[in-house]
Design a binder for these strands. Structure first.
Lengths: 194, 194
DNA sequence: AGTTTAACCGACCGACAGGTCGGTTGCAAA
DNA sequence: TTTGCAACCGACCTGTCGGTCGGTTAAACT
């Protein structure tokens, strides 16, 4: 019955969901405890404090999921097509509820980057890793692309637009505005080809 | 000595700055009171509660400032050039501290749209107003632009990218990433012309 | 001068946050 | 079977938050 590792994973999983929905500060420990059906003592046995729990969620849940999400489309034979399909399927298949929660990385960046150094450096590292991933794979097919493109610049641009569009969908409470931006993003990416 | 209107304005001004820097929830009334050098009673004489204060800040400070900021570049003879100059001067002239605070509208959207309906509808209205402003002015010079452009779609795309880039700059703590995205955004806008 | 009232004061309140700590429980090794 | 300790419990602590309210002050009007 007693399984410390499972307890820890459960805490991480529930915390990740709560933080995704409400943000880090608005997430209360008591809410996590209730959903996990454990005591405060159990949580503080596994994590030193709320911050450390947040860092653990980032490193053990968000970061791996983030890479697992972006890597396949970017490493497709045609990364432009891969990303276009990726974004399009997102606006088609994703439920409105999920969409409105936004990207966990972007949410945390907005909320915590300016407040806590520990979150900032982790988020920055993640963004640079994603940027490198995209830029590398664009340069891989550079022969099919316009000349004089700054791949890193293009990669940051694509991710920024994606994050900005997920922000938009929060206020509209439906996918309409999100879809519009994604359409234009796909059109932009198509123009990268020569 | 006693000037209720001045007191009210001072509260709005200080609150706007605090909310911009820390976000709505993280802004404490006691901090506002200290900076204004007034008592809690004075604040609650002018505003019913924290939410109403937030709405007043949005409507009387953020919204006018937002329109005053975007209108001139968009209504320039050449809106594409106007926006390019607008964005470029932003990344040049803005101090790093200001940049890291992000756009008040985008910040509030991220933080409050999913939590409070009153904020959500105000933010949505503001976004639609801005979108209309940009789309209208793009269609004004449509003869100089590519055919088959969806102006509303393009407008949402531009604003999304801008907001996304301001999010990025929070984690990097300098203008580097912001500049990159803005450069690519200007390149994209240039391509809108035929 | 007296009266009224908007403007303002600040002590106080309950709710809830994150965090602590002495005690209990279950399991595994000796 | 006993014992040691990781795992877990939950009452309690301190601090801060938004919000209340009875009282005071200044100024405008009669």
């Amino acid at each position: 019955m007693r399984d410390p590792e499972q307890t820890r994973q459960k805490i991480l999983e529930v915390s990740a969901d709560e933080i995704h929905r409400k943000g880090f500060n608005a997430t209360s420990l008591s809410c996590i405890l209730a959903r996990c059906e454990i005591s405060k003592g159990a949580l503080y046995h596994h994590f030193a404090n709320k911050m450390e729990l947040g860092y653990a969620v980032f490193e053990e849940v968000y970061a791996p999921a983030f890479i697992a999400l972006w890597q396949p489309p970017v490493e497709a034979e045609d990364p432009i097509q891969g990303l276009s399909d990726f974004f399009s399927s997102m606006s088609k298949e994703m439920s409105c509820d999920e969409l409105v929660c936004g990207c966990p990385l972007n949410n945390l960046c907005q909320e915590m980057s300016g407040v806590d150094e520990g979150f900032r450096i982790r988020i920055l590292a993640m963004q640079q890793q994603l940027n490198l991933l995209i830029a590398t794979n664009l340069s891989r097919v550079s022969s099919q692309l316009q000349t004089d493109l700054d791949f890193s610049q293009v990669a940051y641009f694509i991710v920024s637009t994606f994050h900005g569009s997920s922000s938009l969908s929060k206020s509209s409470l439906n996918k309409e505005l999100f879809d519009k931006v994604i359409k234009e993003l796909c059109r932009y990416m198509g123009q990268l080809k020569r």
